[in-house]
Computed example of a mutant assay.
Amino acid sequence: MKPMTVVTSLGVALPAANVDTDQLIPARFMKEPRSVGYGQFLLYDLRHDAQGEPKADFILHHPEAGKAEVMVSRRNFGAGSSREAAVYALVDDGFRCVVAPSFGDIFASNAVNNGLLPAVVTEEDAEQLLAALGSTPGAITVDLEALTVSVGAVSVPFTLSPVWRTKLLNGWDDIDMTRQHTDAIATFAHQYAEQFPWSAPFPPDAALIGKG
């Protein structure tokens, strides 16, 4: 994954609560391989009318929205089913961070594992950011080192698990998190083998020793 420190980009406001994973990517699109690009399916039923025509006033259809890397929304973002494709849709559409007062637990975990920052702010601060962005994409800065989100004169703190913060700052996955303890693991394995030599498995050809 790409390391993240500061994201300075355009941000878009999605002033809705309970944006669930079926809204983020409707189930009917999950039969498609990811190679087609899941970004085209992001929020599809909110972006289009019943006839499948784009809603011109929807924020993601704004001419500048394609440059946005940050989305600000309301509470309970990513609730619903555990489909990781919801995160794929956001990432494939260019988003690197979603700011909201709360997230679905599985969605947040999937987000971090795919390099997408789920930044948790208070409901009051979310409303400030939404108001500052308004109905058009606007400049926004997300500082993962300082744990702040800023739009113009509005700057608010956000929270994130320290482990998730470490993963995103370094672009690490779970295997990388384990590898940072390689020396300690090797030391433990050596000491354990010396203390409990009887616990080590026999070599594959042990049964042949003394025969022939």
Rank of each mutant, 00 (worst) to 15 (best):
V70T: 03
G66K: 14
R47T: 09
S81V: 05
Y44W: 15
G52Y: 05
D45K: 11
S73I: 06
M30R: 13
L60E: 03
G78R: 00
D57T: 13
D57I: 13
S82V: 12
P33T: 07
M30T: 15
P26V: 09
R47H: 13
F41Y: 11
G94Y: 01
Y38H: 10
M71I: 15
F29K: 02
A27F: 09
Q51M: 14
S82F: 10
V91P: 01
F95W: 04
S35D: 12
G66W: 10
D57M: 12
D45A: 09
L60C: 07
G94R: 11
L90K: 00
Y38P: 02
E69T: 06
I59L: 11
P54I: 11
L42T: 04
H48E: 09
F29S: 03
Y44L: 07
P63V: 04
L90T: 00
E64I: 06
D93G: 08
L60D: 07
L60Q: 05
L90V: 01
R83D: 05
V70S: 02
F77S: 00
K31L: 13
L42D: 08
H62D: 09
F77A: 01
L60F: 11
H48P: 05
E64H: 13
G66E: 14
E64G: 08
H61C: 04
R83S: 03
Q40M: 13
A56I: 10
A50W: 07
G39P: 03
S73P: 03
S81N: 12
Q51N: 14
A89D: 04
Y88W: 15
Q51R: 14
G52H: 08
A89G: 01
E64V: 05
G37I: 06
A50C: 08
G52Q: 03
M71Q: 02
H48F: 11
E64D: 15
F95D: 00
A27G: 14
D92W: 00
I59W: 01
G37T: 05
L42W: 03
K67G: 08
L60I: 11
A68E: 02
E32T: 08
L60V: 07
V70G: 02
I25Y: 05
S73N: 05
F29Y: 13
Q40G: 14
E69A: 04
A68L: 03
G37V: 03
L43C: 09
V36N: 08
F95M: 10
E84K: 02
R74L: 15
